[in-house]
Each structure stands twice: as C-alpha cells, then as structure tokens.
Write a protein that binds this DNA or RNA. Structure first.
Lengths: 243, 243
DNA sequence: GCTGCGATGATGGTCTGACCACAAGTCGGC
DNA sequence: GCCGACTTGTGGTCAGACCATCATCGCAGC
C-alpha cells in the first residue's frame, strides 16, 4: 500500500484511474464473482477499495452502463444486467446517423443475419422451440384484425427462430439491428391491415421449413420474407420527417 | 437564436442532466452539424450552452465514447470518430464473459455473417473491390513462410469481401465479432505454418466464386472455410488460461 | 397479532471549485 | 530563418457538499 515512493506522479500515466476501475470489474466478471443480477459494491466503497476517487468510479460505471453490461438504479445500487444477452442498439443507431447509413442497409444486414439464423434453427431447434414458433404463427392468424397484437406475435416469432439456434450471440445481434425497426413498424402496420394475411402466410412458410428440418428452404423463405418487408417499409418511407 | 424564452426547462425532472447532453449531441449529429472528424465544443463550453454542470457533460461524453461515437484526446478535445463505421467489440466481449458464452458461439455467429456477406459480395462487388480481394490472395501465397504477414492478408481479405457488399453495417458487425478472434489468431497462426497453403487455397476458392458471380458457391466456400477455421482454433483451445 | 406507514440510513445524481497533465499555437531568443 | 520556451486552452482527476431516490425497519393503529 505504501507503494509509489519513487515515482512522483506515475499515478496518472494515461487515463489510468478509470481504466483501473473497469479492469477491476471486468476481472470480477471473468472470474465469475459477479453474475447477472448481482449488485456491485457502492460507488464510495469501490472508490476506497480500488484507490481512486468516486468520480472515477462513476465514469467507469457509466462506460459499462453505456455498453449494456451494468444498470444503475438511483438509490438502490449498480447491478449486472439481467435477462437474455443484449447489445445496445442505440450505438448502432447513432453510428448509422453519423455515417448517413440508410434504412435499407440496416434491413439488409438483418436479412443476412436472420436468413442464416433460420437455416441454423432448421438444423437444430428443439421440439419445444419449434412449438414456440408454432404458437406465434397461430397467434398471427388469430390476430388478423388486430394489427398491434399481430405485430407482437410477428416479433416474437422472429425471436423464437433466433432462440432455436441456441446461440445467444446471434440473438443479440439480430435484436440490436431489428429493434431499430420495431418502432416504425408499429406505425406502418396499422396501414397494412390488408396485408396481414400474406405476412402470416410468409411466416408460416418459414415455420414449415424449420419444422421439416430443411435449412435451405428456411433460409430462402426468411430471405424472401424480409426482402418483401423491406420493400413494403421502403414504400412507406416516401414521406420523410418521421423521426 | 432567441428561442426558448418561455419554457423554464424544469431542469431536473428525472436524471435529465446527462440525457439532455446526449440528446443535444445526437441532435447535432442527426442534422449533420457534426460529421466524422469534427471537434465538439469544449466541455466547459457545452456545459454553459446546455445549462448543466461540467461533470454532467463529461458523463454524457463518456457514454458516447463507450459506444464508439466520439473519441476524446487529452488536451486537444472531443471528436466524432473517424474512419469506417465500427461497433465497439469490447461490449460483445464483456457480454460473452457475463453470460459465459463460449468461443464456438462467437465463431458461429461470424460464420452466419460472413457466409451471407460473401454471397452478397458475389452479387454486387465492383471490379475494384474484386481486384482488392485478388491482391490479398496474392499476398497470402507470397507469405507462406511468414505467418504474421500471412495473417495480415487473411484479415484484409475478409474485410475486402465485406467491403464488396457496399454495406457498412455488415462490415461493422463482422468486425465487431471477428476482432475478438484476431488476437488469439496471432498466436495460433505461428503453430499452423504447415496449413497456410490449405488456408490460402480455401480463400482462393471463395475469391473465385465471387469473381465468377456465383453467390451460392461463395456462401458455401466461406461457410466451409470458417467451419474449418473454427475446428482448428477449437483444437488449440485444449489448454486454457490463455487470457 | 397483523397491517400500514412514516422515519432512517444508504445509495446514486448533481454541482462547485480547484488543481494537474497534455497539446498546440505563439513569441521570443539564437 | 529556425528552433525552443512560454502561454493558452483542453481534458483528467480530485475533494467535499448537497439533493433525490430507494429499501428497510420500527412503531402506531387496527
């Protein structure tokens, strides 16, 4: 603890203080001392333990929060984010804004991800996972007159397919890209009442391909579905100023 | 200019201060007042302009930095991140650590992304982009006795394929996932000297499929390549403690 | 005994003010 | 004319204080 007798400054080589805190937390996570839902020590306590000031601790926690690793609750503490693995979609949204990336590019990336995902799910989804997809298809046909309910089943079907790969990374990637669509989808779906049946049929085709363990058919069906969805959404984009 | 005479602003509604700053910067980005490479106003100046304290401004900038949107340089200022669109791979690495996601899952996600990307590139890569891929293939065969140089061409070939889609989102996604592999690849490649020729051949097959505009062949060749690379890397993983 | 609710302590959120470390432009000396 | 020290402005860190929120527990009322 006495340390630093010689080195007069040493402490602030680069921007150590904050990095030190992040490294500390990362270490706890990697050695499984912190698991999802766990609460971190309080900011004041962390500051003392690591030997930096509270603002430095706060800065580090804010970085981790921006990456979606932790969540802070005023008055309660800071917690490791719970639930399924998710990547922060806000960063992708801002990145698109900075570089002027159009909506179609985002949709295309989603198409690549979900087409490959559907193929994987066809190979290895368990019976329960296939049944979950089936439930959502049923829900779609039962909600042909309720766009918002229909949309909910739509989203959940895509999540069920991603879950069928048993690969949380693919799920996180898809969710990051797709979540940028959902908000706008809620508006456009109201004007697309007449196409709900077609949409449900497309999903059913994807489902059947997965059900019959046909990866190529699943890929093609998903790709076709998202191509049409992209076109439909694009035709709605004529009038800008939405955001 | 004059604006906002009425609205008292209700300063601290919830945890506004920081969110207010982020919204301010986001607004500047979305209306193209800030472009890549541009310098933001100084922290002290932003604080005065927005009407919050400097710590709040710092907290907001740190969030944006964690998302890779801005970069701060001590003594110089804060800048909108330049260069090709990139997502912060650190967040994915930490997410994997928190949820105990294995290496094979990351590799699989990469496979889905790059297989679809290769197919897209076969459809629409320009002549220059195809030529860039060819250059890297040539570089690989010229570096069969220099693993580190070989690896460099390997990485650049994959980037060239991603660039061939003209879709920066796919490039950013792939880079985020793949960058988690590169570090370990640098070590394993030394022990894989004998397999460099096979690796080069596999890449050549991918290239030829793209060159001949055959999306399906490109997808299969890339998928096969990454499957083998995954298996090779996995066999090296027997001895843990690398990190 | 049980229930409901106010008091209490701990936690994160914000602010002020100050000082340090670094980068870059400026002006002086050579 | 060139180069180095200095000035200025920037982000980085710290200390201390206060406010807002939350979780808990004890007490009063039922």
């Amino acid at each position: 603890m006495t340390g630093r007798l010689a080195a007069p400054q040493a402490a602030a080589r680069d921007s150590v203080a904050v990095e030190q805190v992040i490294a500390h937390v990362r270490g706890l996570i990697e050695r499984r001392a912190l698991r999802p839902g766990d609460r971190l020590a309080s900011e004041r306590r962390l500051a003392v333990e690591i030997g930096v000031s509270r603002p430095s601790v706060r800065a580090a926690l804010r970085s981790l929060a921006a990456m979606g690793i932790v969540q802070t609750r005023h008055g309660a503490g800071t917690f490791i984010t719970e639930g399924p693995p998710l990547l922060v979609s806000e960063s992708l949204g801002l990145l698109a804004a900075v570089h002027g990336i159009g909506f179609d590019r985002l949709f295309e990336a989603r198409r690549v991800l979900e087409a490959g995902t559907a193929a994987l799910a066809a190979e290895r989804a368990t019976g329960d996972q296939v049944a979950a997809m089936s439930d959502e298809i049923t829900g779609m046909y039962a909600s042909l007159d309720d766009p918002q309910a229909f949309l909910l089943h739509d989203v959940r079907f895509h999540r069920a397919v991603a879950a069928g790969t048993n690969n949380p990374v693919l799920g996180a990637l898809i969710e990051m890209v797709a979540s940028l669509h959902y908000e706008q989808r809620r508006e456009t779906v109201e004007r697309a009442r007449g196409q709900l049946r077609d949409t449900a049929d497309m999903h059913r085709r994807i489902y059947q391909a997965i059900r019959t363990r046909d990866p190529e058919a699943a890929r093609l069906a998903m790709d076709d579905h998202l191509r049409r969805a992209q076109a439909a959404q694009a035709s709605e984009e004529d009038r800008p100023g939405a955001r």
